[in-house]
Simulated scan of single mutants.
Amino acid sequence: MEGGTERGNDGPNYVEATQKSIGVLRFLKEHGPATLSTIAEGTDSAKSTVYRHLRTLEDAGYLVETDDGYRIGQLFLDYGIEAQRSHPLYEAGKPKIDALAEKVGEKVWLVVEENGYAVYLYMQSGNELYRSFTRVGYRGHLHAFSAGKAILARMSKSEVNAILDRRGLPAYTEQTITDRDRLFAELDRIRQQGYALHLEEAVDGGNAISVPIQHEDGSPIGSVCVAGPAHRLNESYLRSELSDLLLGTKNEIELSMRYEA
């Protein structure tokens, strides 16, 4: 599940043509190669309007026209790699994530907050197989994932409320916290114990544990997450075994960012 409540589109700084191009790109990302007619129908736009946007985006290298229709161009791969590498947490966190994945044998993620979402910046997989809907570049609601809750727990109440007002509290599963008071109580517990869990809150059958990565002033930079199937990563194992390992990784990353910058 991606997306959420966006900013209003009727303000003085709103550019309708730009928003239309973004809508075309978002449709193709979510639905794969598509013809002009399919895109026009899917974006509720006139074919003539969509055609102009497609040609503009194609000429600039952001789209490619194939036998199956238009698709996202590989230029976005270049942008994506630059976006990943330019985040200050990436260089400091990557070797620590790799080492932790080898040690625990599970998927280990480096996650950051951007624009009110949890963004999955980097992943290394251990020996154990686990397929999930998350991927590098995935954006999810912060409240539904342990990685996001770990970040929220290190924000001020006003900052958390601003994100919830903007993005909401949608349910990913029946276990997702969708009540604001319950979420704040959960964030209090996370601050006290030093780590966050999600127990089938983001996906049925999947559990995870995360710890925040923080600046010297305590504000969050991101989080480290270990995720896997609930039968392997049960609550007892997450708390008794993985929490200390993640807290050690957290300390290493914070020291690297502080003294190797």
Rank of each mutant, 00 (worst) to 15 (best):
I39T: 06
Q124N: 14
L110M: 12
R26L: 10
G69M: 08
A34T: 13
I72Q: 02
H53K: 05
K103P: 04
Y70P: 09
P88Y: 10
V50C: 04
F27Y: 15
Y90D: 13
A150S: 14
I39C: 06
V104I: 14
I97W: 09
T43F: 00
Y51L: 13
R139F: 07
G32T: 05
T134M: 04
Y62E: 02
Q84W: 04
A101E: 03
V108K: 00
R71E: 15
T56D: 09
D59K: 08
A101Y: 02
L100W: 07
G61F: 03
E82R: 12
T56Y: 12
W109P: 04
E106T: 00
F27P: 04
Q84G: 02
H143C: 01
G80P: 00
I81R: 14
F133E: 07
A144W: 00
G93L: 12
E114I: 07
L129F: 03
Y138K: 03
A46K: 11
T35F: 08
T49S: 15
E128Q: 10
L110H: 10
L28Y: 03
A40K: 09
I72F: 01
A60S: 04
A46P: 04
A153C: 12
L28C: 01
L100I: 14
Y122M: 02
A144S: 15
L77E: 15
V111T: 11
E113A: 12
